[in-house]
Design a protein around this nucleic acid. Structure first.
Lengths: 190, 190
DNA sequence: CCTCTCATGTAAGACGTTACATGATTCA
DNA sequence: TGAATCATGTAACGTCTTACATGAGAGG
């Protein structure tokens, strides 16, 4: 389980409560982790029991909002994190994408519907790319590694998009379907 | 659960038994799916019960090797697959990589150890790239989508590698560490 | 005969998701 | 007062991993 280590890593920046941790992970590791309360709270409890983090119940300390539990990383937590960080990473990359999962089987589907799904995906990845540019700007002043990571996010997204747009052309040609733009151009010259 | 649909997709090519399905998924979707027998056999059983696939126990039909169970996709299975294939994909991409997971926290680690891990990863991704080039060649005659998918595999891998090599330079500079090559070069001119 | 690979399977437990329950604070 | 948001939590369920058990055939 490496959600544990994501949490320990995050707590290096500042003490946080569960709700905030979830927000951070969703914003910063959203493409790596899909997180939910059913994971976060039991994990925090377990990590507290193992003394990797400590909790102090700040009831309305900041005066605003409902009572929350602030978690701080302990020395034991830091040590455990360092041990993990210096380890050679285990098994390889997992890239699981529901679109790509289907794409690889589009040879067995209807080309017209495939093109629709491709267009939806182009839109979706364009939105994602915009969000990643925003991230890049937001982490301008952060550490080297965080910045490099944000750059990777942009780069992989750009490759994905470029590939899918090229693919679209090829699929449309193969299927004998014209893109809306080409059809319009054709009608104009007619 | 979309392992189900991967299996239904694979069975469009030819009838297969569990062991072979696992091999295929590992080779062709290895970067998407990590699969094991604890998943494959219960799934096949369940899918057979739902009549999405049918099984005939070919005991030494091919004469070679131990008895195996050949699964064939049924019409119901094809219909279910078509329904899934034409659906708009659900939630987005999940890219979970144990190296990248650590990388984003290297600001809290020792630069020297980080560089070692980066070098290990460059090696690992170079090996992976070689395998993906091989895949690309192997699927020359396959359908458009399969070929495009293989091309994406190569492209993303290339971006990852290029990024990590650039990152390595930056990290080494930042840490004031020379690469072994540079040190050697220095000693030679001395 | 012994070992390796091919092949099928199960059981226990770790991990993840969904849905729900609870309650405080904020703002209209 | 009622709705939205912030915040914590749990229970049930589903999925995935690990480890093990079994056994046939191939080749030295």
């Amino acid at each position: 389980m490496s959600l544990k280590y994501s949490i320990l890593g995050l707590l290096h920046y500042q003490p946080m409560h569960g709700y905030r941790i979830k927000e951070h992970i969703e914003q910063n590791f959203g493409h790596m982790w899909s997180i939910n309360y059913g994971q976060i709270y039991p994990n925090l409890k377990k990590m507290k029991d193992e003394a990797l983090i400590s909790m102090n119940e700040e009831i309305c300390q900041g005066e605003k909002g409902p009572p929350r539990k602030l978690y701080t990383i302990t020395d034991k937590g830091r040590a455990e994190f360092q041990r993990w960080l210096a380890e050679s990473p285990e098994r390889g990359m997992l890239l699981r994408d529901p679109f790509l999962m289907r794409f690889v089987f589009f040879d067995f589907g209807e080309d017209e519907r495939s093109l629709e799904l491709v267009d939806e995906q182009i839109q979706s990845w364009e939105n994602q790319l915009a969000r990643r540019y925003a991230n890049l700007a937001r982490w301008e002043g952060a550490g080297v590694y965080v910045r490099l990571m944000a750059e990777l996010g942009v780069k992989t997204n750009e490759v994905l998009l470029a590939w899918l747009k090229e693919a679209r052309q090829e699929i449309a040609a193969e299927a004998g379907l014209e893109s809306r733009e080409n059809v319009t151009a054709f009608l104009k010259t007619e």
